[in-house]
């Protein structure tokens, strides 16, 4: 065989790529969440930093260990483990001990993601799986809230209640909302309230979500339909009885709604593919959130509602299919 010039590359068309990669998307989401993480540290001090570090580093380490143990290529560089870890941390109170944080990271990575086959195959949002398992297994540690003390990093923790649990217990005891909740104040918007790390600053989270929308990492469909449904439903109840049901604005900024609607429900893997499916998904999340918050036994329902809708996602994907271009009458798909 005679020598010849270097071989040409032949690959299937297209021979161009948009440039956005999976790891790039994960990195952008991490970037969008950084201000919220900084806010959490500012409000809750060093304990918050500890939870964040344990969760993020723990998730990455556990994913690497698991992949090594199961003889798979190690893919922690794609950033999805770090993102999961950060979201787990955002779902924990600042007072969580190190072992609770680590357990949360382990649950998210192993039970939430790897047992299903890793990235892209998990039916439920891993961080929410961790949150729910911990909430049910360690109810007291998971609802031990501390009051935010802005800028005082080393201050002693002061136990307090979240606005949502405050309103729920008040309604249960006296039948109407406490004064400071029925008169909504702007301090909630900035996050000066007790809660999980990622629940306290709706405004910063919202700005991060706008960044993601601008970068094209998430689409508007889920956040808008989710938040819209919550606003609409809670608004109806508020109009019926403002003394018993809080203002819709209170719902929007308290608890994990902003985090859930912008970062957890929009999780690519566990949400529907089509735009109509996404709208349906967001509406379902909103419906369940309002129902659980107002009538359930838990004060917060974002995590439960997103997990519920995650379970419905395959069904939505199966029945909400776009009609192919040029096929005018309804055609049977599946």
């Amino acid at each position: 065989m005679e020598p010849r010039t270097p071989l040409l590359i032949v690959s299937p068309s297209p021979h161009l790529h948009a440039g956005l990669t999976t790891s790039g998307m994960m990195g952008t989401v991490l970037l969008a969440l950084l201000p919220a993480a900084a806010t959490a540290i500012y409000l809750f001090g060093l304990p918050a930093l500890r939870v964040l570090l344990v969760c993020v580093l723990g998730s990455v380490a556990i994913e690497a260990l698991w992949q090594k143990a199961t003889d798979q290529p190690i893919t922690v560089r794609d950033g999805s483990a770090a993102l999961t870890g950060l979201l787990v941390a955002f779902n924990l109170p600042a007072s969580s001990p190190w072992w609770l944080s680590l357990l949360g990271a382990t649950l998210a990575i192993v039970v939430g993601k790897q047992v299903f086959g890793g990235l892209g195959h998990n039916p439920f949002n891993p961080a929410l799986v961790a949150r729910i398992v911990l909430l049910i297994s360690f109810p007291s540690a998971m609802t031990h809230w501390t009051a935010p003390q802005p800028g005082r990093f080393l201050a002693d923790a002061i136990t307090a209640a979240t606005p949502l649990s405050e309103s729920q217990s008040a309604v249960m005891l006296s039948g109407h909302l406490p004064q400071h909740i029925s008169e909504f104040s702007a301090r909630y918007l900035l996050g000066s309230m007790p809660g999980c790390l990622g629940e306290v600053s709706a405004l910063v989270l919202f700005l991060g979500a706008l960044f993601l929308l601008w970068r094209g990492v998430i689409s508007w469909h889920i956040p808008v339909s989710y938040l819209g449904t919550v606003t609409l439903l809670s608004g109806i109840f508020w109009l019926m009885d403002p003394g018993r049901y809080p203002h819709p604005m209170f719902h929007l900024v308290s608890g994990g709604l902003m985090l859930g609607a912008c970062y957890m429900a929009t999780d690519l893997v566990t949400s529907p593919l089509t735009t109509r499916g996404m709208l349906l998904f967001g509406c379902g999340c909103g419906l369940f959130t309002v129902l659980i918050r107002l009538f359930g036994s838990y004060p917060e329902g974002v995590a439960f509602s997103i997990l519920l809708m995650n379970a419905v996602t395959p069904l939505i994907d199966r029945y909400v299919v776009p009609r192919p271009f040029g096929m005018d009458r309804g055609r049977e798909l599946i």
């Binding site: 998307m25 794609d78 990235l119 689409s219 893997v269 593919l273 996404m278 776009p322 009609r323």
Partner: peptide, 18 residues
């Protein structure tokens, strides 16, 4: 890599396929 079900291909398809 593995499909992360982002739905971008569905959104980009000019024939509205999946």
């Amino acid at each position: 890599g593995p499909c992360v079900r982002c739905g971008r291909c569905v959104a980009a398809c000019p024939m509205r396929l999946q």
